[in-house]
Computed example of a mutant assay.
Amino acid sequence: MSAVQPLSVTEPKKQPKATVRRRSLAPLEPVSSRSRWMLGLAFFAVFVAVWAFFTLGGFVSPTFLASPVTMVKEGWLLFTEYGFIKDIGMTIWRVVGGFILAAVIAVPLGIAMGAYKGVEAFFEPFISFCRYLPASAFIPLLILWAGIGEAQKILVIFIGSVFQITLMVAVTVGGARRDLVEAAYTLGAGHKGIVTRVLIPGAAPEIAETLRLVLGWAWTYVIVAELIGSSSGIGHMITDSQSLLNTGQIIFGIIVIGLIGLVSDFAFKALNHHLFAWSFVR
């Protein structure tokens, strides 16, 4: 008998791993913080360059659109001769007052609606209805009820913010993880403990983010409030400039609103990162 020759098993050759080249503009590919700042500043530079080209080049009449140079000169006059810093202070005061008033009422109500379905069933239809009503539509009534003073303007911001915050907070709290709730019940927590030690801490980062977003909307409401029956504020200055066809001051006022809103947004975001640093860890 011939000996059986063992079968030789050849190991498959290992294929070299394909290297994936990542590009900064690839889908969902993050960019560095430095690149983000540079790209953001680049857009503003291009925007101002195009604006200057059409206005300084004579393609657009100064009556309809002032040039960047004219806008800066008019802004300097606003600060040095017309007390524009006071208008800025009044506008900030109105935004902060109306927004804080809305948050103080909306956040607890939203937490109650998210935690207790009976409370949600009672309030949700009315709040959803009011959420679609434009805050500017209440201005005639508010003038009748509160006059043309500060209360009227703060109430416009309050109405424009309170219903949005309430519903967004309710959705956030109501979307809590059920396994955490069941675990808390298993460990002996009561209904109050579930709300105070599970639902609120878990939803706190998103509630803070909701407040940050709605604060941006509040800046749009204050200008609407100041356009009617106001003797101070950025909106009042814009209205006066419109009657004088001074587009330089109008544009400067709009840019100031954007800058203040941007600073407040960054400050709010930094505060959220400080208070809820654990929620931003990925």
Rank of each mutant, 00 (worst) to 15 (best):
T70I: 11
E29S: 14
A45K: 00
V20M: 10
F43C: 02
V31T: 10
A42D: 02
R34V: 14
V72I: 15
L28V: 06
S35F: 07
P62D: 08
P68S: 09
F43W: 08
P30R: 03
R23M: 13
P27I: 05
S67R: 05
L56K: 13
A52P: 01
G40T: 04
G58H: 07
M71E: 01
G75Q: 06
M71K: 02
L39F: 10
F64V: 11
G57A: 04
L41W: 00
E29R: 06
T70S: 11
S32K: 06
F64W: 14
V31Q: 13
S33C: 05
R36D: 02
R22Q: 14
A66W: 04
V48I: 15
S24P: 00
S24V: 15
V69A: 11
L39P: 00
R34L: 14
G58M: 08
R36E: 04
L28M: 11
P68A: 09
E74A: 14
R22Y: 13
R22L: 15
L77N: 15
W51V: 08
V46F: 07
A66C: 05
G57C: 06
P27A: 13
S32P: 07
F44G: 01
P68K: 07
A66Y: 03
M71V: 09
W76N: 03
A49G: 07
L77V: 09
V20K: 13
L25W: 10
S67L: 06
W76H: 08
M38G: 00
T63S: 13
S24Q: 09
R23H: 14
V72S: 03
S61H: 15
R21F: 11
F47G: 00
S24L: 13
S61N: 15
F64L: 12
F64K: 07
A26K: 01
T19W: 08
A42Q: 02
R34M: 10
V46L: 14
K73C: 00
P68H: 09
A49T: 12
L56N: 14
T63G: 12
L77M: 10
S32I: 05
T70Y: 01
V60H: 03
T55A: 10
L41F: 05
P27H: 07
S33W: 11
S33Q: 10
A52C: 07
F43H: 00
S24K: 08
A45H: 00
L39E: 03
W51R: 06
S35D: 11
S61D: 15
L65F: 12
T63R: 14
V69N: 01
T55N: 04
P30V: 01
S35K: 12
F59H: 12
P62I: 04
L65H: 02
S33G: 13
V50W: 05
S24W: 15
R21D: 12
S33H: 09
A26N: 11
W37R: 09
M38E: 04
